[in-house]
Nucleic acid binder design. Structure first.
Lengths: 350, 350
DNA sequence: CTGAAAGCGCTTACAG
DNA sequence: CTGAAAGCGCTTACAG
């Protein structure tokens, strides 16, 4: 009975364009044209219709409109999560990227239809076929390989999509300028007078950006006549712990080093803690630069020099690349610009 | 010509339920029933239909389905921005809340339709009338009063909505347990032996939580027989600067204090910087507790003791309260639980 | 400039 | 268990 009542209440009197037509004394098709701003309707009619629509509190039923036109004005956004992970606990990077994406779409006149997906029972990228969106953006954790395989396969069928974070290169992606950023970081350390600069990172991580950052670092080192040196991270640990372990290992092995480039900020912050634990002065004895520009780096002691991608650009580039794909327009950019955020951890006097 | 070409390509061969019907040798209505899982169709038929649908790559046109049923399975989320502010540059708090909300909706089987709104030309909360969503959640900056007035007025018309961040109390909101959290913070400082505890905050801010936090602080002080003392923040400045200024003023005025409770973490971090600039030991000479549990506080030196709201709960509570409103069910919770995150800035030996 | 009509692709009573 | 038919509320040729 409660259910029936609720249902009958839900079936509230809907105002349709026919009601507006009657109130304005015109036909339903004229209402549609007038409200859509078709210049063919006379100003007087448009006004009468607009007034009636306002008075009746009329809104176009978008489902009916879309059924006719096929246009949705919507971009689907899928956030890939770790299976079993709490969907409500997205990390700050992905939260910021999601927000940037939604904001950029909004500026282009699109709404975003967001869903979180973590397993085969809820994978869905068929938004175009379902007529729920004009295209798809996929972001989220790199680690969910099943998800990325699913979307890569879907893409074969010609749907419009772009992504950030896929573990492979043969899809349409946007990424930070990792190579250029790592080069910036390394050249900065060299300019500060550091010479034995090690890189805490990985060349084999599914995180493509880690490899790209190592490459940028190594290129800058070689250009300066210096020997690149990789301190590999231990898989499966939290990033901070990977940083701590890497430094602990360097010290235990008595490897000489006077600076560290960490392929991401959390690794750098962990490394910083371990250096402090060993009473190694930063930046006095060892210089340190991270990558990503996370906020926490501004409050560490010393504050962390880092490479900061332009996040706002990230959202815009994803949206613009997607829209270009839909419109079959050229759009060659796919690297988000980065800049050096120089703080204390790399500031060596002289 | 390019436009025409693009259009003709867009008008790609759509697979409908009639195509599936033909392929499976049944009627269109049977296809609809079979794919919807109607138990009335025979297992053999269901299999034939499912196979044909898969082979033809068929997906239900959700616009047509919704036009018939009226259900959307979608929650609209409006993010209120500052007018003129870059929509792509949402602060970490709102990014996290947005992500939490989308994730929570996802767990309840809903997708979220996100839009960013900042001015009268793009205000839109008419998602139910437009049949784009079953209800609305509004989050974002408190400062955009025009936006909040718009949504409050809309709410009068009986639409389903809940919000976080409105500058008034007479709407359906979810908030942190600000009073309880401030009490926790204050009692913690008292337990650590601090007595002259000042509160950096405001009792008149449109940010309702600031007033609630001051009240909780004041209540805890009085319960302990101590005198509450408010250090008001200067309007219109970045939060960090408000913290710096407040501490500078306390020192300039030679007001005695041995601890500070800041009504939010950024204010606390600014206060911490100013204390350090004056060589005042934290927590040795002055104890400090913030509110919000932002990540940066974990990396400050000393790290910041704070009150952390349960963000995951925030998204869930918003979604559940909205869904309860739609279903006309009881849902009385509206305070997100908080807990004390004890770190270094308040840890006084003895 | 306006109206009558077709049709977008479904779901769901109604019959059988 | 299945099919024929109505109808959800629009947009847009087609006529006038």
């Amino acid at each position: 009975m409660g259910g029936k009542l609720a249902q009958s209440k839900a079936r509230v009197i809907r105002v349709t364009s026919f009601d507006v037509a009657e109130a304005a004394g015109v036909s339903q098709s004229t209402v549609s044209r007038a409200l859509a701003g078709d210049p063919v309707v006379s100003e007087a009619t448009r006004l009468r219709v607009a007034e009636a629509a306002l008075r009746l509190n009329y809104q176009v039923d978008e489902n009916a409109a879309r059924l006719r036109t096929g246009r949705t004005g919507t971009i689907a956004v899928v956030v890939v999560c770790r299976p079993g992970e709490d969907r409500k606990d997205l990390n700050p990077f992905h939260s910021a990227l999601l927000a940037s994406l939604c904001g950029a779409a909004s500026l282009r006149g699109y709404e975003t239809l967001v869903s979180f997906q973590d397993g085969p029972d809820n994978f869905n990228g068929r938004y175009e076929e379902q007529r729920k969106a004009d295209g798809l953006t996929v972001i989220g954790t790199t680690e969910n390989y099943a998800a990325w395989d699913y979307f890569r396969a879907l893409g074969e069928s010609g749907m419009h999509w772009v992504c950030w974070g896929a573990p492979f290169d043969d899809v349409t992606w946007i990424r930070s300028d990792n190579h250029g950023g790592a080069r910036l970081a390394t050249e900065h350390l060299i300019a500060q007078g550091y010479r034995r600069i090690a890189c805490i990172g990985s060349t084999t991580s599914p995180q493509r950006q880690f490899g790209e950052r190592y490459d940028g670092y190594a290129a800058a080192m070689r250009d300066a006549g210096l020997e690149p040196q990789l301190v590999p991270i231990d898989k499966g640990l939290p990033r901070e712990d990977q940083g701590r372990r890497a430094v602990a290992r360097l010290i235990a092995e008595r490897t000489p080093f006077d600076a560290l480039f960490a392929v991401c900020d959390p690794i750098a912050l962990g490394a910083l803690e371990e250096l402090k634990a060993h009473a190694i002065a930063v930046p006095g004895t060892v210089g340190l630069v991270g990558f990503d520009g996370i906020r926490a780096g501004a409050w560490s002691s010393p504050s962390l020099t880092t490479i900061e991608p332009d996040f706002r650009a990230a959202g815009t580039m994803l949206v613009d690349k997607l829209l270009a794909g839909i419109a079959e327009t050229e759009h060659s950019e796919r690297r988000v610009p980065v800049h050096l955020l120089e703080r204390e951890s790399s500031r060596r006097a002289g």
